[in-house]
Amino acid sequence: MEFSEDDAAAVYDVTNPWRAEPGTSDAFYTGHAMAAGSVLDVGCGTGQMLHLLRRQGHHGRLAGIDPDRAALRRARRRTDVEWVEGPAADIPWRGEFELATMANNAFQCLVTDGDIAASLTAVRAALAAGGRFVFETRNPQARAWEAWAAAEPVPFEYDGRSLATWWEVESAEDGVVTFTETVGELDRTTPLRADRATLRFLDVDPLNAALRRAGFAVEHQYGDFSGGPLTETSQSIVTVARAG
């Protein structure tokens, strides 16, 4: 079985469906987006959130940007949303959106200080004055990568086959974690696809400093998607920032 980039994008939708259930990250982002007249989803992937907004009756402007061509092919099944292929730093819009989102820890794909600065500057430029940027990143104090390394394969069904996803952590140093995500047979004997990725785990103080430099003021910061306080043991740093 050939496991293509299109298969990988389809599997993402199977294993990570957008479910706006109370208390979840999906509900948090959906609530903010439904209340905004125009929404830019940065790192939109396969477009699940924007698709849901349309199904739930959002009549305003919706746009998504992502560098993953295969994911965007799935996103473009809806033609009533604007789709752009590219990284966050290449956002083409200026002062046009009330809300920008960056869900599913996509912020962590910005690995270098330069990546973070350029991307935040581009998000700020896309927002109208007073617009909000809502996103989350994993709290480095919680050391999520240790759980990835110890996790059992996660099973799922795709194209009539029983498959699984598992992770191997290659390195974790100075807030930068490199790992491999593999899709294959349940017993791990037949890998079908392995993708290597690097993520940045940025702590609260440098994160907020980067936001300030890009022209944002932090309005709220939570430790979960129910509005709980941010503590050292919180899994996430959930941020609502306003464009100055």
Rank of each mutant, 00 (worst) to 15 (best):
D7H: 12
D7M: 13
A8E: 12
A9C: 03
A10M: 05
A10N: 05
A10D: 10
A10K: 12
V11F: 09
Y12S: 06
Y12T: 01
D13I: 00
D13H: 01
T15W: 03
T15H: 02
T15A: 12
N16T: 14
W18H: 10
R19W: 03
R19E: 15
R19I: 13
A20M: 08
E21H: 00
E21I: 03
P22A: 11
P22Q: 05
P22T: 05
T24P: 04
D26L: 06
F28P: 00
F28L: 07
F28V: 04
F28E: 07
F28M: 10
Y29Q: 06
Y29D: 11
T30R: 14
G31W: 04
H32E: 03
A33R: 05
M34A: 11
M34V: 09
A35H: 13
A36M: 07
A36D: 11
G37Y: 11
S38Y: 05
S38G: 08
V39M: 05
V39N: 02
L40T: 00
D41I: 00
V42G: 13
V42I: 11
V42T: 14
C44H: 09
G45I: 01
G45D: 01
T46K: 01
T46H: 02
G47D: 08
Q48D: 07
M49N: 05
M49A: 11
L50S: 10
L50H: 09
H51P: 01
H51E: 14
R54C: 09
R54K: 15
R54V: 10
Q56Y: 07
Q56M: 15
G57W: 06
H58K: 14
H59M: 08
G60K: 07
G60C: 09
G60Y: 11
L62W: 09
L62K: 09
G64W: 00
G64V: 03
I65S: 05
I65V: 13
I65Y: 08
I65M: 12
I65F: 12
D66Y: 01
